[in-house]
Design a binder for these strands. Structure first.
Lengths: 228, 228
DNA sequence: ACGTACGAAATCGTATACGATCAGTATGTG
DNA sequence: CACATACTGATCGTATACGATTTCGTACGT
């Protein structure tokens, strides 16, 4: 008579493990042993195995035959490639969403941006990051192409996983970011051409990436140049 | 002592089923029954199940809990969304690859394009389609961002699956296509700015989509407008 | 002391068995 | 006759068991 959870055990396992990775409970390099996970979760190995393979497909973990799974490492270039990919798909998503974004959406986004500005003076990087995600979500969530939307979600997820270990909040950048958000909103309000919206959205993320690179003195792979 | 196949059975199953879907042996709507597949392949249900879930993740099949898997339908809008997504990621991939494309690559691509022109007079749509894939492959395969490259591959795969049932070769379009290929090669030869390459590559696919729409008299979802 | 061969422990890969769930059909009731 | 309900067959979901593979420590020979 108990309320049957609609989720199968493999899905529960998937969600649980993914959560722990995103929260940083399982750090990169951590070895995920099927039997142990199954024991901890109270499930059998089969659904856990399925969950692991799914996480592998989304590259949260790496998997080696007859060896097992480990939480995916944070290769710095991985972060860069993820950002670059996200800048492209998110730019497109925002451009596609633009005609469908109404005044109410813009107002909502602007309110979020205002709160971000407050975080700036209170110096609250964590909240700032959360709000930033919310802001962009308002903009691209109306994208009518489900495939692109899916790619954007994956990108953000991946980014969150990467950041959980290397949280980087570049101080000077945050202020610029808020200003760029406002500029983006103005474009949307005025129903600017899709091309312009896309360029702006893409450049916004590219600028974040540049700031990160400059701040952490990474060498950017040459491949990152030339597309923003 | 037998040479152990390096591939696990789940991978073999994955490859086999995917192949049959791409070849059209399993048409859209075909019901994939675990027990039957396992029996046919000579494996047990567990690896087959894993293969199915993987195919689901790449949306070759749809899966419903306690009901089973069916080969993904060919919702016409699905084709459109796939093409649109591909135009975006392939455009980006080509632009990123541009600086790494050497004279040899261009020559190779041009040779392929020449053979495509021959297919035009011989009227050989099947071969034309194959060569077309090879042509674009030469261009984007040098893309240094592995994530984007992966997205392009997925898009082409998905397209192939969709086309296997609705093969569409728009006669007039093929000729334009060859011309656009040549134009793209000229851009690459002259080391045109990445933006221009991206725009051209994206427009090339968008034009194919437009031609398809015009030819088959589909109603384009409004969402497709404005991004090319 | 070093490299190699061997063996044990750990871990994954798959087969089989059985319980759970769903769609469709037959049956009972107003 | 319409509708709700119980049954049945098909199929999936998971647990358990066992074989296959890798890894790593250890003993042995040089």
């Amino acid at each position: 008579m108990s309320i049957q959870g609609a989720a199968s055990k493999s899905e529960q396992a998937y969600a649980a493990i993914k959560d722990k990775i995103l929260n940083g409970d399982y750090s990169p390099g951590y070895r995920l042993v099927l039997a142990k996970l199954a024991d901890d979760l109270g499930f059998s190995v089969v659904p856990v195995r399925e969950a692991i393979r799914r996480l592998e497909a989304e590259s949260f973990v790496t998997f080696e035959r007859n060896v097992g799974a480990t939480v995916a490492g944070i290769d710095p270039t991985e972060y860069l490639y993820t950002m670059q990919t996200l800048s492209i798909v998110e730019g497109a998503a925002t451009a596609l969403a633009a005609p469908l974004i109404g005044a109410a959406d813009i107002e909502r986004a602007r309110a979020i941006n205002t709160r971000m500005r407050e975080c700036l003076v209170d110096f609250d990087p964590v909240r700032f990051t959360e709000l930033n995600a919310a802001f962009h979500s308002v903009l691209f969530e109306s994208c009518p192409n489900p495939h692109i939307l899916d790619l954007v979600h994956r990108g953000w997820n991946r980014l969150k996983a990467l950041r959980s270990s290397t949280f980087s909040y570049v101080p000077g950048r945050a202020r610029e970011s808020v200003a760029e958000h406002e500029a983006l909103l103005v474009l949307l309000e005025n129903h600017a051409p899709a091309d312009d919206v896309e360029r702006a959205a893409r450049a916004h993320r590219a600028a974040t990436l540049e700031a990160y690179l400059a701040h952490s003195r990474h060498d950017a792979p040459a491949s990152l140049a030339g597309l923003n």
